[in-house]
Each structure stands twice: as C-alpha cells, then as structure tokens.
C-alpha cells in the first residue's frame, strides 16, 4: 500500500485510469438511461415514473459508497498515516455529496406522483438527508482545518468521517426498522423483487455511474497533488 505513497508512482497509474473509467462509464450510463427511458415497459402500478429507478438507485448507492470510502480512507490515514488516503477522503466528498443530493431530489420527484407527497420525515428519507448534512459538514471541516501542507484532510476531519459512518447501516436498515412510505429492500443478496424486464438497465447505470464516480475522484486527487507540487515549489523559492 505504501508503494503508492509516492505521488509520481500514483500519478503514473491515475493519469491513464481517469480516461479508462470516465469514457466507458459515460457510455454505460447513457446507454442504461436511454434503455430505461425508451426500451423497458412502464410498471403496471407506478406507470412511467418507475423509470426514475435507473438514476435514483445508483445515486443512493454512490452517496452511501462515497461515505464508506471516506471512512476507509480515514482509517488508512489515522492508522497507517498514508498521505494519499487523506487526499482521497477529500476528493470523494464533493461527488458523494452530489449523488446524495441527486438521490434526495429524484426520490422527492418520484414520491409526488407515487405517494402524493414530495417529502415525508420517515427513516429512509431523514437518514439520507442526515448523510447530505454530514457531507456538507465534512467539506466545511476539511476546508477550515489545517492540512499540514499535504492537501488532504486533517486528522479531526478524518475522525468526523469515521464517526459519520454510523449513519450508513442506519440508512440501509431504516426501511426494515421503521414503518416507512419508502418500499422495503427490493434488491438483496437473495435476488430481486423487481421484474427482470424492468430491472436490466439498472446494471448499466449502476456500473456506469460507479466508473464515472471513480474518474471524478481521480481528477480531484490529481488536482490536489498538482496544487501540492506548486505549493512546495513556492515554499522552496521563498526559502531561497
């Protein structure tokens, strides 16, 4: 793992990987979205609104996966003091917050014709809103606290990322623990309750958005590393 603590070694892999993740991701998510909009049938009960599934589910998955990534990066930063882990945590925060916001917005839009309301303070929606606030708090804390010239997040921010991970299993189990307008888990390890004729484009958008997310994280890590390089150069010049 410490092999990649050297930014040049990391960049050697990250530079080509950014495009390899971004373009196939974009193709997959566009293909999945088009199939979901134009090819699959409408649901017998929900009608055409079921097509929101193909963007809402990947957004929820990436909102939660993003914070899980922040928590893993925090452990690696705090235990092994890996400099890239601190940078990775910072890079994940903005796309993670974006997908959490998209999940809330698309869920609200889906809720209006399906449940007759834009919003309900039930377990799933409230815990997802808490996740968005956690992301915003993490970003604010990362920008406000000292970074030791490494461009990553401070140990305090990393601890915040680790503690905030308690919300992830709460989101996951919220529809089981509490009575909710939101449907129960429809995709589990044992299979799916969604009919195959509607489900299949979800695989494309899930994979596509995940690859795209990876590419955006790499872009943001490369930005931080490049800024570090400039900062180090300026400090050397200032010292003479």
């Amino acid at each position: 793992m410490h092999r990649f603590a050297n930014p040049s070694r990391f960049l050697k892999i990250a530079r080509p990987l950014t495009g390899w993740l971004f373009w196939p991701g974009l193709v997959l998510l566009v293909a999945g979205a088009l199939c979901g909009l134009l090819v699959t049938p409408a649901d017998y009960l929900q009608g055409d609104t079921v097509r929101i599934l193909y963007i809402h589910v990947p957004a929820a998955w990436l909102g939660m996966a993003g914070w899980s990534g922040i928590a893993v990066a925090a452990i690696v930063q705090l235990v092994w003091r890996h400099p890239l882990a601190a940078i990775a945590g910072r890079a994940v925060a903005a796309p993670g917050a974006l997908f959490t916001a998209i999940c809330l917005a698309t869920g609200s839009i889906w809720g209006r014709p399906t449940w007759g309301t834009w919003w309900e303070w039930d377990g799933r929606m409230t815990s997802m809103l808490v996740l968005l606030f956690l992301y915003l708090g993490y970003i604010a804390l990362a920008n406000a606290s000292p970074r030791d010239g490494q461009g990553g997040v401070s140990p305090v921010t990393a601890i915040f990322g680790l503690v905030g991970a308690i919300n992830i299993p709460i989101i996951n189990r919220s529809v089981v623990w509490w009575n909710s307008l939101h449907q129960g888990p429809s995709i589990t390890m044992r299979g799916s309750s969604i009919d195959g004729s509607i489900l299949w484009p979800l695989g494309f958008t899930l994979l596509g958005f995940s690859l795209w997310f990876g590419a955006i994280v790499l872009m943001r890590m490369r930005t931080i590393l490049a800024r570090n390089k400039v900062e180090a150069r300026l400090q050397r010049l200032a010292r003479g």
């Binding site: 929101i52 974006l98 698309t106 943001r220």
Partner: peptide, 23 residues
C-alpha cells in the same frame, strides 16, 4: 408521469455535467 421523469433526469444530468466540468 413523464413530466416527473424528465425533471428527475434533468436534475441528474445538470448535477453530473457540472461536477464533471468543474473537476
């Protein structure tokens, strides 16, 4: 229903395009 579907996809498109461009 299509008005809701289009609104959801538009929100997603604008958000992902903006973050892609800024990053």
């Amino acid at each position: 229903h299509w008005a809701f579907v289009i609104a959801a996809y538009a929100v997603t498109f604008v958000g992902t395009a903006a973050v892609s461009w800024v990053s």
